[in-house]
Design a binder for these strands. Structure first.
Length: 108
DNA sequence: TTAGTGACAGGCA
DNA sequence: CTGCCTGCCACTA
């Protein structure tokens, strides 16, 4: 497994419940600012075997970027279950729920 | 091998 | 606020 993938997985596992991060944040923390799409791919392929909180990862517009309606609904329900308010169209207030990368908990 | 396609981001209209 | 365009890279047909 390449180091980028490992770091991405560790970052996602550190996202606290009730908070979210964007793909861009994660890719930047992992050392590849332009690899947001690969983060998404890692999530899709690794979320099951690594038990990742994939639902806490959203796009830069603060929305659920799902194409599949079932998965989109599941993510919405999981987020609301953690106290995150999700708008009808799947929007989330990043000002409130986004986990800042400058926090002391991020010693990557 | 080339072309199409995303769990995306950022700039611009 | 929304939509379109370009860059990015792994995967698939």
């Amino acid at each position: 497994m390449n180091p980028f993938t490992e770091i991405v997985i560790q970052i996602i596992q550190k996202i606290p419940a009730g908070k979210v991060m964007t793909y861009g944040q994660i890719s930047k923390l992992a050392g590849n600012p332009r690899a947001a799409r690969q983060v998404a791919r890692i999530l899709h392929s690794m979320s099951r075997k690594h038990d990742l909180p994939w639902h806490r990862v959203i796009n830069a517009k603060g929305q659920i970027a799902m194409k599949d309606n079932e998965t989109r609904l599941e993510q919405k329900l999981r987020l609301e279950d953690e106290g995150i308010k999700v708008s009808g169209s799947g929007r989330i207030d990043l000002e409130i729920y986004q986990q800042p990368i400058n926090s002391d908990t991020w010693e990557i």
